[in-house]
Amino acid sequence: MSAAAGNDADSLVVEFYAPLYRFAFSLCGSQAPASDLTQETFYRYLTSGGAIRDPSKVKGWLFTTLYREFLRSYRRNARFPHLELEEVESDLPKVEAADMEQIDGQLAMDALQEVDEVYRGPLSLFYLESLSYTEIAAMLEIPVGTVMSRLSRGRSHLRQILKNRLSAEDRKVIPLGNRTSGRS
């Protein structure tokens, strides 16, 4: 690889490694596999022989490749059962926007992990990359209508999970004088 090409590749890695890692982490839920997915994605790009000639398409290629690799390698190990959200959607309480003050990044990511995988991919790109529904559809190779539906149901499920988490926190007994150690 020439020095110029090497510098370009380094710049590309620096620009995209963090958003790709966050996407990978949101999909598989732990640090080691998320790092592996990110590295594998860059390896595929760097060994592709410059197949992506249009620089504007590199980002999409990287996210699509990472998602495909996730589906290939990790999907069979999904930890959470599929929920028929329509059956439970209207009955369960959901977290309010005002409650978000009580939620930090780790709790938000933990809750996202509990969302069924089919909703998690679109939700991750929606929240982490602020992508439009058409961009998400192209990256995940699913129809636009399906993206809209999954965002709506996924968000609803996410809010239920966050509500449950906060309720569980509230039920914890915290001794007087130690309240700073809990979420409040």
Binding site: Y21, A97, G105, Q106, A108, L128
Partner: peptide
């Protein structure tokens, strides 16, 4: 809610 959720998730740092 979406803005708050996006902010929380983006605060996760890579190793």
């Amino acid at each position: 809610f979406d803005a708050a959720m996006a902010g929380r998730l983006r605060s996760i740092e890579p190793p």
